[in-house]
Nucleic acid binder design. Structure first.
Length: 446
RNA sequence: GUGGGUGUAGCUCAGCUGGUAGAGCAUCUGGUUGUGGUCCAGAGGGCCGCGGGUUCAAGUCCCGUCACUCACCCCA
């Protein structure tokens, strides 16, 4: 019995931690007026294909085990979705007549990718997406709004400092065209490796792909530009390249950064080397890293897509961003040791002197629950020491002892050992003990 | 998909040049029969990943296979 690699499962305490994180995400998304939807786990394979050659290879097909082999590879075969954006685009087309535009939705679901698993990379994982789509035209200010929502989520989570890196694909595209480089996609792919292999080898690859030495230098000069304010615009201008696509990209990115400076200073960074692999992004792209853990990969990314959803008459451009919840938890929970304060929602364990008192104990439990306190009754009338240990093992903070012979009930805080008389019809725990909370170990994330 | 590493108790691991399995932690029980955490004593728990080969004899050597893991690719 060994775990399946890439299909993570948590123990109860860590699952509670995950739920607490999801609560923050959901609450914040809703605070910004995003409505929840859920889409089916499967899409026709033909709809999933075409987002990028590497992505295509990672799609899990689905078929009945008893199906004949010729049914398995057909065009309308089903596959598990590998992100939430493609299914959402389909959902918008299918329900366009019933949706009100611009449509803001959030979606928190599992997705599947047939990758080789590693720390922070799974084959089944949870994404939390927000997207805005409109019919015909999508106002550019949404591209500035989405990362601000994400920044608000991250500020509430024990993730340390983070940076949302933003770029606009029109900038490298216009720049490359302006210096006579026509294979924009291939050049972007090479530039994307800059972090890993360094400028020298990147330049070699660029020259190897047909660029002149001068063009390679220009491309690298652009990729090196990074600023937390609007100064990136001047830095690009200083390179002396002119192209209308470049101009529109610079304007769009400046608008996003300007909004960040105003509402979330220090979190949005213009970084002109960010490219993203998925082919459907057409403008703004985002990528998020935790400061000090850049090598762990992006924990939240997305971008603008103008042509993903189209019924031939109307196109529905959108912009979206997706939190890699599982990847985030892989770092925060699995590596840093952040977990929940207890492994069960139970706040109070009602102790049991003997089985004859179980009905009375159940009435006590019901009285406490009626005021929203999570309660369970001891599983057996064992020695009180064992019942206390039952609570201690699970992190349950309180044990309730029913008074006998008319004596008052008593409740014991097993962390302090303090035991006081209490009335099941009135007692309340401190607010912070009512539900499990996130516990962050002392030296966070080193 | 490519390359490296590792598979022994629930977990972390030991097991020398082959001689039919051990420790710590965890779990359970008792000491303490209505108040836990410490301490002491005891107990349960292993087709040594799987298949084949060499050998009188394989956890140990050889081959294969599977799984896990790290890196690359790519990505949340």
């Amino acid at each position: 019995m060994t775990p399946l690699s890439g299909f993570p499962e948590f123990l109860p305490a860590d699952r509670i931690a995950e739920q607490l994180v999801l609560d923050v995400i959901r609450r914040t998304f809703e605070l910004h007026g995003f409505a929840s939807i859920e889409t089916r786990a499967v899409e026709p394979v033909s709809r999933l294909l075409g987002s990028g050659e590497d992505a295509d290879k990672e799609i899990y097909g689905i078929h009945r085990l008893a199906a004949r082999s010729e049914e398995r590879g057909s065009d309308d075969a089903l596959g598990l979705h590998f992100d939430l954006t493609v299914p959402f685009a389909r959902y918008v087309l299918e329900n366009a007549g019933k949706l009100a535009f611009p449509f803001r939705r959030y979606q928190i679901q599992k997705v599947w990718r047939g990758e080789r698993p590693q720390e922070g990379r799974y084959r089944e994982f949870t994404q939390a997406d927000i997207d805005v789509v409109d019919a015909g035209e999508l106002a550019p200010h949404f591209e500035a709004e989405l990362p601000l929502v994400i920044a608000e989520v991250f500020r509430q989570l024990p993730v340390g400092d983070f940076r949302i890196q933003v770029n606009n694909r029109r900038i490298p595209e216009g720049f490359y065209l302006g210096i006579g480089v026509t294979d924009v996609v291939a050049t972007l792919r090479i530039v994307d490796k800059l972090d890993k292999i360094g400028p020298q080898r990147t330049a070699d690859l660029l020259v190897g792909s047909g660029l002149s030495q001068g063009q390679a230098e220009q491309v690298l000069a652009l990729a090196a530009i990074r600023s937390e304010d609007l100064s990136f615009v001047e830095q690009v201008r200083a390179l002396g390249v002119e192209h209308p696509t470049l101009d529109s990209g610079l304007d769009a990115l400046a608008a996003v950064i300007r909004a960040g400076l105003d509402l979330a200073p220090g979190t949005l960074v213009a970084d002109l080397r960010i490219a993203r692999g998925l082919d459907y992004y057409t403008g703004t792209v985002y990528e998020t890293q935790l400061v000090g853990h850049e090598g762990y990969g992006s924990v939240c990314s997305g971008g603008r897509y103008d042509t993903l959803a189209s019924d031939g008459r109307t196109t529905y451009p959108g912009v979206g961003i997706s939190i890699g919840v599982s990847r985030l938890l892989g770092l925060v929970v699995s590596r840093w040791g952040v977990t929940a304060s207890r492994s069960t929602p139970t706040c109070v364990l009602v102790a049991l002197a003997d089985e004859a008192h179980r009905p009375a104990a159940m009435r006590t439990a019901a009285a406490l629950r009626s005021r929203g306190i999570p309660v369970e009754v001891a599983p057996a009338a064992a020695r009180f020491g064992k019942q206390i240990r039952y609570a201690d093992r699970r992190g349950i903070p309180y044990v309730w002892f029913s008074g006998t012979d008319g004596a008052a009930d008593e409740v014991k805080d097993i962390r302090s050992g303090e035991q006081v008389p209490a009335d099941a019809g009135a007692w309340l725990p401190p607010e912070e003990d009512l539900h499990p909370s996130l516990v962050v170990p002392e030296p966070l994330g080193t």
